[in-house]
Design a protein around this nucleic acid. Sequence first.
DNA 1: TTAGGGTTAG
Length: 404
Amino acid sequence: MIDEPMHIFDQMRQQGLSPDVVNYGALIDVLCKLGKVDEAMLKFNQMTKEGVTPNIVVLNSLVYGLCTVNRWEMAEELFSEMLKQGIHPDATFFTTIMRNLCNEGRIMEAQSLVDLMVRVDVRPDVISYTTLIDGYCLAGRMEEAMKLLDVMVSAGLKPNVVAYNTLLCGYCRAGRIDDAFRFFREMLSNAVTPGVETYNTILHALFQSGRFSEAKELYLNMIKSGMQLDIYTCNIMLNGLCNNFVDDAFKMFQSLCSMDSQLNIITFNIMIDALLKSGRKEDAMGMFTAISAHGLVPDVVTYHLVTKNLIKEGLLEEFDNLFLAMGKSGCTPHSGMLNAIIRRLLDRGEIMKAGAYLSKIDEKNFSLEASTTSLLLSVLSREEYWQHAKSLPEKYHFFVGVDK
DNA sequence: TTAGGGTTAG
């Protein structure tokens, strides 16, 4: 798909038109968002070679891409270059860096950037403050996050719905739902209209803290107020109900299907997990089969849920099939899954098959869990298995007869 | 053409 704009550039050239800074900017931005930073840099170099002067927007996209893949040094080089060319950093530039610092937990450095912005005469905007508020929330430093909202107001800025949602979400994550409600009221009194994201945040927190009746009431209020519910609302409700009311969740799921609601793979994962946990294996497998009928494909979570159950049930051939399907769809097995299947196969004395999965563990550089190692030792100490043990990867031959 | 917020497992 990314090839398309490149073809468009070729077509433009054929017609005697040259891509300008906006065209290049759009392409570089898409490449950076896809994590293809090297390709983005190539395009950037090509652009400058063609005599198209970069602007702050293009540089911001590149800085975004470079920071996201932790290429801080290159971002710094770019920054120096940009100053040399007389391009001044703007609020977006600083906010991009702040976002990445916050994600790495480097909150004080992010805070000092806001101070630097003021010194170099770049006014932090609502997004800059919101980014920093989120950083404090992520670090669990709620009092500082809250104070920043006041700083923002003193700087003459008006917090918007995203700023409030960020703070509200921080309080919810910290389990301080009543404080979240306080900000919810403040939001209303400041004429900031809560969005579906706001309600979803509170709904999720209410379920998380076991306040089921309040959660259900809030959900009904959302419907009553004519709010457009989205896939997040559905998933939060389903997941919340699954904790104690699986039947209600199942009914809600069916009614969503009958209303042709747009579900996603997370919806199915929530349901499969809950059905398996409550022992409804057939319903869970039915749900797994229904995924493709909804135009969706299983993801790594789906495979992990279902394969875990197959191992538990001893349906190892079905596991093999699903394991292959998983590989074909590009989902990577995790270490726990491989260890679990190896243990189950060793239990059954299927050494050769266990060997195949041991090789997968080695390929991925995963480690054997202690329980897998001890089972392997105990199985291979039995003479009846020595012959089979030769089929194991060589590094495991050492285990043969060790106990004897 | 660029920056900020909400959902699943382990």
